[in-house]
């Protein structure tokens, strides 16, 4: 399919790595336009509901009600995202439901000034029509920042790590590793153990045979079983099974 050599540029990903002063490397998984638009839609729905509920009551008590009605509108438009982002762990209800969180560029939580800056600049992102500038800006920088994010130095990232598939079978047989494995090899083995039940049987065997140092000479099915058992060992599933049996 190609003739070029391996590229010197790093592989494409949507992760921003931040080095903390303690020397830890944080992975911030940047959220893109679609999931953020979804969060916005949910928030819009919430705001609409509140607005509608308020209008039902407030329009019935004359000019006082009208004054508070306008106040409510103002608050929903400008203060709603700020308050939620600062006081509710960096997420409006829509963002929370979409698994998003707003943080500062270095991964620290949002403060008032940053949140006010990014949300008050929504007004500019909204121009000329329905976040056209915002969407365009998000496309033009690597971190999916709209203008408000650029100003405030904030990022919208995913809150949770990608969920690892849960092992549903009860295969807990363990085999002892024939030699020491590096960390990445161990990770690959665990990954294989977790996902093997999801692969087609043929593919699982084929993959297992690729790990020749561990499965040399074995037919596909045996190779698969062997890797699963080694994975069980790394996951400590044998001990876990023994404990639950003892508990019962």
């Amino acid at each position: 399919m190609s003739s070029a050599n391996a590229a010197p540029v790093p592989r494409l990903d949507t992760v921003r790595r931040v080095l903390t002063p303690e020397g830890c490397e944080l992975e911030l998984r940047l959220a893109g336009g679609i999931v953020r638009a979804r969060a916005w839609c949910i928030d819009f729905l919430f705001r609409l509901l509140i607005f509608w509920g308020g209008s039902l009551v407030l329009t019935r008590i004359g000019s006082l009600g009208m004054a508070f009605f306008l106040l409510l509108y103002f608050l929903l438009e400008w203060i709603y995202p700020v308050v939620f982002e600062v006081l509710w762990q960096g997420a409006t209800p829509g963002k929370r439901l979409s698994g998003l969180v707003v943080v500062r560029d270095d991964g620290t939580p949002l403060d008032w000034s940053a949140s006010v800056a990014r949300n008050f600049l929504r007004f500019v992102d909204f121009l000329p029509f329905f976040y056209a500038f915002g969407v365009l800006t998000m496309g033009l920088n690597r971190e999916n920042k709209r203008l408000g994010d650029l100003l405030a130095g904030t990022l919208v990232v995913y809150r949770q790590p990608v969920a690892a598939p849960r092992v549903t079978d009860d295969d807990a047989t363990e085999e002892i590793l024939p030699f020491a494995l590096s960390e990445t090899e161990q990770r690959a083995l665990i990954e294989y153990r977790l996902r093997a039940p999801g692969f087609s049987y043929a593919r699982a065997g084929e993959l297992a045979q690729l790990a020749t140092p561990l499965t040399a000479g074995l037919p596909p099915d045996d190779a698969r079983d062997r890797l699963v058992h080694l994975g069980n060992r790394l996951l400590g599933r044998g001990a876990l099974a023994a404990r639950t049996e003892g508990g019962e």
Binding site: S2, R11, L12, A31, G32, G33, I34, V35, G139, V162
Partner: peptide, 25 residues
């Protein structure tokens, strides 16, 4: 191994985001 996209477990949302990265690169 020639693939220039980082291979890892991703949510489908992240896969969509990666599309934007592809356009950029």
């Amino acid at each position: 191994d020639r693939l220039e996209l980082e291979l890892r477990r991703r949510t489908p949302w992240e896969a969509l985001d990666l599309g934007m990265g592809m356009v950029r690169r």
